[in-house]
Write a protein that binds this DNA or RNA. Sequence first.
DNA 1: ACTATTTCCTGGATGC
DNA 2: TGCATCCAGGAAATAG
Length: 312
Amino acid sequence: MPELPEVETIARGLAKRVTGDVIESVWLGQKREPLKSPAAEIAMVLDQSRITEVRRMGKHIVFDLDRVQHARVARALLPANGQGTKRKQKKSKATLSTAHREATGSVRSTLASKAQWIVHLGMTGRLQVCDPQTEIAKHTHAILKLSSGRELRFVDPRRFGRLSVASAAGFDATGVEPLEVDLERFVELFRGRKTPIKSALLNQKLLRGVGNIYADESLFRAGIRPRRRASSITHEQLRKLHQSIQEVLKEAIALGGSSVSDYVNADGEEGFFQLQHRVYGREGEPCLACKTPIKRVVIAGRSSHYCPKCQK
DNA sequence: ACTATTTCCTGGATGC
DNA sequence: TGCATCCAGGAAATAG
């Protein structure tokens, strides 16, 4: 489940591998859930673009693109060269003729020389850079053929991930970056909010990038129960929470993120921060500070883990 | 303007 | 072994 540290790790790995590459062709699967922008628009923007930068914004991976030349529209919607025969028939049929025709006129005219490809990995999304010969994984929703001869593929079994494009105006992520926000602005985020602090931490419109694992871990370190109303937390406790969030995220990035379920980085390697979890996934196990069994409750539909003695 | 709840998805774990 | 059921979770949509 990629949250900020995992997405940061993946974005850094991808930046090393694909910066400077030109996208020579784009194949998009027939499932529409993974596509937030119209398929034809995504294909049109990506095709013949150079990747100039890969970075993270919240839980999003942003690929900055430079248009190399005008889109060669017809190619953008065909399967990548040499892949058609190996791919299952169902997938090679995934062309987008109707959307394509609609978008050809309108999108081409609005294309700027700068654009962005935005990827949200959801729960199970993966971006893999591999040779074209590599067998195409089940649930592959996008394949970009790169000028270096490799392919960049988006695979997502659960289809909670999302792909979109932004043009010159740029991608506008909501919320503030937890690693950049100063204490004053951080405190302001929670003023007057009656919602449980756990829910507030997960709200991407306030803070972007914190998910279930790091919310629980941060609250433990700050000694705050997840159900506490955000507005009831003292300034001193918020100061501690602000510090805890930054510490937890930095430590997790340093260890390559948390590998629970099937998370791996851009090189296929697991992270190690799961070994540092003090409450997440430890229901019934003794608190590492006081040995009290860790409790699990559901808040906003999410498992929330805490120590009933250490957290008030 | 907020807040709470429901929905979308599949694979792995569990239970009978 | 097989089959049904439940659960994981981010964020958008819906309801209050």
